[in-house]
Design a protein around this nucleic acid. Structure first.
Length: 801
RNA sequence: GCCGGAGUGGCGGAACUGGCAGACGCGCGGGACUCAAAAUCCCGUGUCCUUCGGGACGUGUGGGUUCGACCCCCACCUCCGGCACCA
């Protein structure tokens, strides 16, 4: 027998697959179809074990579904624009285009080496003009519908990356990418009107097959809360100011009124003290503001009229009120809100209780914020004595009748700010004309190419502004002097529709053909890390809903099912470039081959949970593959050909087929499927020349193919067959799943006392008689008999005394 | 604070619908092969007790339901993750 040499057989089979175009699929609408997709990578470094995991999961599912008769689309590409790629380029000191394309080449070579089954001709990178051209085209459609707009707003600014960030890119007040503390700046920016879709994004979560934890995150993120909007009059400004509250029942308890420092009416307050406070507040970092323990603020000298009772409430400006939640203004009810309570204490403002708890007692050192059964309103005029929820309802109804308020729903979700002051991104196809104002670039002038420039580094103003030849253009409308938009799009725009382009990547008349996209989509299984669960996956859902409203796609949700893979950890922290604890697969691919590495990453543990990387487990998988190799080769030499005889080994093989099919097909339990094949190989190794050995060997090879496709193809060929990748998945014979004897457990009072080998068909009374006859059981029955006998056929007999 | 998830041998984990706890693998112990080692193969491996037949205990803690609970219910502890001055 020849030695197992992974390098040789892997190269051989990768060439065969390429020559046979094994994983390239047509767009013919063949059913059943399956679109298997993993989140596309940033080409910002080399492969690591995290990639190894995600793409191997997708590959196993792809190969499994293909052999189960499905027309499977499994494409790949690169999220090659944006901060990750650009920052990598700056680190390497090369132009982003050079660095990106170099990385793409390197990563693609690694991919091929692992033997992942991709439809390579569909490979798409988002920095390619024929990709971003259609993104610009879609942006213009969003613009026409008012779903893309430009406005001045307080935005999150990363002082390190020198760009605006979306809310979704800020974690705990820090830039998601570089960790710098984020500042608030008032800037004119581009936004997508995702808030129009807040309710749809929430509702349609019911229609997708995603892990509950991921749905919960999105619900958290969207942050729906029901309440009321109420108008307070400020005579000094001659304005009605709206507040949002979830507690209209506490309206009679309002004793002051607060505006966020960024509230649009604050600049109209003529007060040096207020101006000074606003200046200091805006200088604070976002995280600093959130962490403040002491409440600060300043009295404006103005008063707001409480619409229910005409009380004049002093108006403060304080930074504990956030500009980007609700209306940026609040009615303050210190008795029933801890933050208002703290402020009232600090500024010596009155605290008036209006909700009485059921037991009547209140701890006056804190706000009473419960929602207990039996609470009633007090100090609330006509509403006194009403249960709090009902009182709140009536108060809002009364306000609505006066046109001073009404029920409303508020969302935490903000519009998606998508313009970036960076070079490496999709140009926004807009021109500013001195005469015509903002003018969209006409479709037939797309794409607006990203120009090559020398100095692309971030410096606070968009680098494109310096590309004068590019910036200065003739207005598409009047032909007069005009300037291009110099900001670029967030990379999350690129990743909001890439999976549609994969379906029709060569299309040069449209972003995609709707019929083709509607055939393949929605994605049947989307695989990726939980870190994109609230950002990318909300944006993509929004994008698809808009395209659906435009009639461009026939579905409302992009990802019908989602598998959230765990993180590969080393020393218990996530393996990542940032943590500096990356173990690359290349070394292991050299030492053990692709098959052992692929098996290993899925055998480490359940793929949807974090898994600690260990080197010894790759060695174990290497042992397993070599064992499979030697056992099967010996079977080829020694075992007789012909029909299996249906003995114990054949039965084991059929049981393994059933187990592996269920584990991969239904449970995504990739680790236990491998364990089942190991069991089969262990059995086979004890009987390498029997009548059933050849069948067992073929079964083991066939079942391990999604994980270890190269060695499986090679052994399959040696067993006298060909093209395992397109051979039908084995089917378990129900007759052979029946076993000839089963072990029945005999319990006395629930404790196991004996085990019997019986035919599965044995009658219940006969089984009980057999069990009762057992000496061991007799010893525990103490001469008496059971008060009750529980029988589970084929499983157990329990004598209850 | 609100929301989601998880606690099982020395370790990673298995037990899918309430019915044999610890599959499979790692590690460890013993043995075979070898001058020796590596590799490979075989046997053993939850804890405690044992007259070696077996027995008792055992899935974070305390209760409950059930003939029977890792699994269901109640309360709690610990850990991980998301959101959070969100009105």
């Amino acid at each position: 027998m020849d030695r197992y040499e992974p390098g040789v057989i892997e190269e051989k089979w990768q060439r065969r697959w390429a020559d046979a175009r094994a994983f390239e699929v047509s767009n013919d609408p063949i059913q059943p179809k399956s679109y298997v997709l993993e989140m596309l990578p940033y080409p910002s470094g080399t492969l690591h074990m995290g990639h190894m995991l995600v793409y191997t999961i997708g590959d196993v599912v792809t190969r499994f579904r293909a052999r189960n008769g499905m027309h499977v689309l499994h494409p790949q590409g690169f999220d090659s624009f944006g901060l990750p790629a650009e920052n990598a380029a700056i680190r390497e000191g090369v132009h982003p285009r050079i660095s990106t394309e170099r990385n793409i080449d390197a990563i693609t070579r690694s991919y091929r080496r692992v033997g992942w089954a991709y439809d390579w001709p569909r490979l798409t990178s988002t920095h390619q003009p024929d990709y971003y051209r259609w993104q610009q085209w879609q942006f213009l459609r969003f613009l026409e519908r008012g779903l893309a707009y430009r406005k001045a707003a307080p935005v999150k600014w990363c002082p390190n990356d020198q760009t605006v960030l979306a809310n979704e890119q800020v974690k705990e007040g820090r830039c998601e990418r570089c960790g710098a503390e984020v500042e608030s700046r008032l800037m004119e920016q581009w936004f997508f009107r995702i808030t129009d879709y807040a309710q749809a994004l929430l509702d349609d979560l019911e229609t997708v097959d995603w892990p509950e934890s991921i749905k919960a995150r999105q619900r958290n993120w969207i942050g729906r809360s029901e309440g009321a909007e109420i108008q307070f009059r400020i005579d000094e400004l001659d304005e009605d100011i709206a507040v949002f509250t979830t507690r209209p029942d506490t309206l009679y308890g309002a004793t002051f009124f607060v505006l966020a420092p960024e509230h649009e009416l604050v600049p109209r307050i003529d007060s040096d003290e207020v101006r000074e406070y606003v200046r200091r507040a805006s200088a604070k970092k976002t995280a600093e503001r959130a962490a403040a323990t002491e409440k600060t603020g300043v009295f404006t000298g103005m008063h707001a009229i409480n619409p229910v009772n005409g009380e004049r409430l002093p108006v403060y400006v304080a930074d504990y009120v956030l500009t980007d939640y609700g209306t940026g203004a609040i009615m303050a009810v210190p008795a029933h809100d801890q933050r208002d309570f703290d402020f009232a204490r600090a500024f010596d403002l009155p605290i008036r209780q209006v909700v009485k708890p059921p037991d009547g007692d209140v701890d006056e050192s804190v706000a009473y914020v419960e929602h207990a059964e039996g609470e009633v309103l007090v100090n609330s005029s006509d509403y006194d004595g009403l249960p709090a929820p009902e009182g709140g309802r009536r108060i809002v109804e009364a306000l609505a009748a006066d046109g001073r308020g009404g029920f409303t729903v508020n969302y935490r979700l903000r519009d998606w700010g998508f313009s970036r002051q960076r070079y490496w991104g999709c140009p926004i196809p807009i021109v500013y004309c001195e005469a015509c104002g903002m003018v969209p670039v006409p479709d037939d002038q797309l794409p607006v190419h990203l120009p090559e420039i020398e100095d692309y580094k971030p410096k606070g103003v968009p680098p494109l502004a310096q590309a004068e030849d590019w910036v200065n253009v003739a207005c598409p409308s009047c032909g007069g002097p005009a300037k291009r938009e110099v900001e670029t799009m967030d990379t999350f725009v690129d990743s909001s529709w890439y999976f549609l382009r994969y379906c029709d990547p060569q299309n040069d008349a449209a972003p995609f053909d709707s019929a083709v996209v509607d055939y393949w989509n929605p994605v049947d299984l989307y695989i990726g890390g939980v870190d994109h669960a609230t950002v990318h996956m909300i944006y993509a859902r929004f994008w698809i809903k808009v395209l659906n409203d435009m009639g461009m796609v026939g579905f409302r949700e992009p990802f019908a099912a989602f598998f959230s893979n765990g993180w590969v950890t080393l020393g218990k922290s996530k393996m990542s470039k940032r943590a500096g604890n990356i173990v690359g697969p290349d070394d292991f691919l050299d030492r053990y081959g692709a098959d052992a590495c692929r098996l290993n990453i899925l055998f480490l543990g359940p793929a949807n949970e974090d898994m600690e990387w260990t080197e010894t487990s790759v060695e174990a998988m290497n042992r397993f593959v070599r064992r499979l190799w030697s056992v099967v080769n010996e079977v080829v030499e020694r075992a007789p050909a012909g029909e299996p005889e249906g003995g114990a080994l054949a039965r084991k093989a059929h049981a393994t087929i059933a187990k592996v099919t269920d584990d991969i097909g239904r449970r995504f339990a990739f680790n236990t499927a491998i364990a089942a094949v190991m069991e089969l190989v262990n059995e086979l190794s004890k009987d390498r020349a029997g009548a059933d050995s050849r069948f067992a060997a073929e079964t083991a090879v066939s079942l391990v193919q999604p994980y270890a496709p190269h060695v499986a193809e090679e052994l399959w060929e040696r067993l006298g067959h060909e093209r395992l990748w397109e051979s039908p998945w084995p089917v378990a014979d129900p007759a052979l799943l029946e076993v000839d004897t089963v072990e029945v457990v005999v319990q006395v009072n629930g404790k196991i006392r004996d085990r019997l080998q019986v035919a599965p068909s044995v009658a219940e009374d006969e089984l009980v008689a057999l069990a009762r006859a057992s000496e061991k059981v007799q010893a525990f029955l103490n001469g008496g008999d059971a008060a009750r006998v529980v029988v589970v056929p084929g499983k157990l007999v329990n004598f209850v005394l």
